[in-house]
């Protein structure tokens, strides 16, 4: 007889605990309900070959991924969060050589002269930049906004995608550990 009251109470407790957990996870930024999982995880990066934007030496193509761990950042000068994460990319660029990875950029739907003006002032963290003026290569990657960050392994497979501006926590908890693992 007593059990009849305990069962709903326990069920309710579980429900409540689940809701509180989700709320806390969302508020602390651990979980983003609008985040879209990448369809390309563990699949080869799409084939492409892009020229460098005007005034930059190295373009970007799929061949550049072979044999190296790559962090690929999708960015544009028109995107404020890209400006916000820029100092972290510069920091990451300094680690690239010793860390055994390369940091490359996909300049998504941008104007060459605007990018040149921005990087002249702020600095260029990327060893290669592909000018994706039409956004087609972005679509092949499943990009739906800037910035996005991908990690590609030495075999050219996409192993990680994050949509949104990088933070030092994300670098510490996700990006650096995965790069270190892939480099081994």
């Amino acid at each position: 007889m007593r059990l009849r009251f305990i069962i709903p109470a326990v069920l309710f407790l579980f429900l409540g605990a689940g809701l509180v957990y989700a709320l806390v996870a969302i508020q602390s930024g651990k979980k983003d309900p609008s985040a879209v999982p990448s369809a390309l995880i563990d699949k080869p990066a799409p084939e492409f070959s892009l020229p460098a934007p005007e005034g930059f030496p190295q373009g970007l193509s799929t061949a550049d991924f072979k044999g190296k761990v790559t962090i690929l950042n999708v960015f544009a000068s028109w995107c404020p969060p890209c400006h916000a994460e820029h100092p972290l990319l510069l920091e990451l660029a300094k680690e690239a050589k010793a860390g055994g990875f390369q940091l490359v950029g996909l300049n998504w739907k941008d104007k060459d002269e605007k990018l040149a003006a921005w990087f002249k002032e702020a600095g260029n963290p990327f060893s290669h930049i592909g000018a994706d003026r039409s956004g087609r290569v972005g679509i092949d990657f499943g990009v739906y906004g800037a910035p996005e960050t991908y990690i590609i392994d030495r075999d050219g497979r996409i192993r990680y995608r994050y949509a949104g501006p990088l933070t030092s926590e994300r670098l510490r908890d996700e990006i650096r550990p995965l790069v270190a693992k892939l480099k081994r």
Binding site: V36, P37, S38, A39, L40, I139, G142
Partner: peptide, 8 residues
């Protein structure tokens, strides 16, 4: 399109 963006 699904190959690029997933079932979502």
């Amino acid at each position: 399109v699904v190959a690029r963006y997933g079932d979502f």
